[in-house]
């Protein structure tokens, strides 16, 4: 396969109560819990999407990152073949622990379907797909650490084999109030080269 060059069209980082678009802070709050930070971000985006409040923290994190990157992309009159390739370390463990607690006491055993459904990491891909009507390729991977090499190669495969026109990649890590999201849109055109070195650099910003 002869690889054509691909580019990072835009990128978004969410960490420490801050959201950066292409390296610039676009929203931040005073130190606060993620639930509060995510709600304030939602309000900042002036969204009317009540489903947001039903999501677990991992989905909220991924959803907000996607919102910043795709809000200018969404065009419902045209099909948008943007694939989703996401990964993290902790899978849905934060919600798994919450769910496990709801079934560990026989006296107080009320498993919640609304919690159980989020005990799969790929649910956040479903949430993004629904919001942006992306009937597209999607897959969720788990690695011990941020893995720019795999992400770069896999997203390029999707573009080269014409399975997708663009790829939204994301490292979305959430466990017990520790979070970091780094999402970026890979396209066949753009200014920032899409390669491992640059992905490493942008992730660290």
């Amino acid at each position: 396969m002869t690889a054509k060059k691909t580019y990072i069209q835009s990128f978004c980082t969410i960490q420490n109560n801050q959201i950066l678009m292409n390296g610039e802070v676009v929203f931040s709050t005073e130190p606060t819990a993620f639930s509060d930070f995510s709600k304030k971000t939602y309000q900042h985006l002036e969204m009317n999407y009540p489903k947001f409040f039903k999501m677990d923290n991992l989905s909220k994190l991924a959803f907000l990152g996607a919102e910043f990157l795709l809000k200018s992309e969404s065009n419902f009159s045209k099909e948008n073949n943007t694939a989703l390739v996401f990964a993290n370390k902790s899978s849905s463990l934060d919600t798994d622990v919450k769910y496990q607690n709801s079934i560990s006491d026989a006296e107080n055993y009320y498993p919640s379907p609304a919690v159980f459904v989020y005990t799969l990491p790929n649910i956040c891909l479903g949430e993004i797909s629904i919001k942006h009507q992306l009937k597209s390729e999607n897959s969720f991977f788990i690695f011990a650490d941020y893995n720019p090499e795999f992400m770069e190669k896999y997203s390029n495969i999707l573009l080269e084999t014409l399975k997708a026109d663009k790829v939204l990649c994301g490292w979305v890590e959430y466990y017990n109030e520790n979070y970091k999201a780094f999402l970026y849109l890979v396209d066949k055109e753009g200014e920032i080269e899409h390669n491992q070195e640059i992905l490493k650099k942008l992730y660290k910003q």
Binding site: H132, K135, E137, N138, S139
Partner: peptide, 19 residues
């Protein structure tokens, strides 16, 4: 091969089987 999302609901399949 293909792996395409319904973009419809997180727990229920699409009624039209779109994905």
């Amino acid at each position: 091969d293909g792996s395409i999302n319904d973009a419809n609901h997180i727990s229920g399949p699409s009624r039209t089987g779109e994905g």
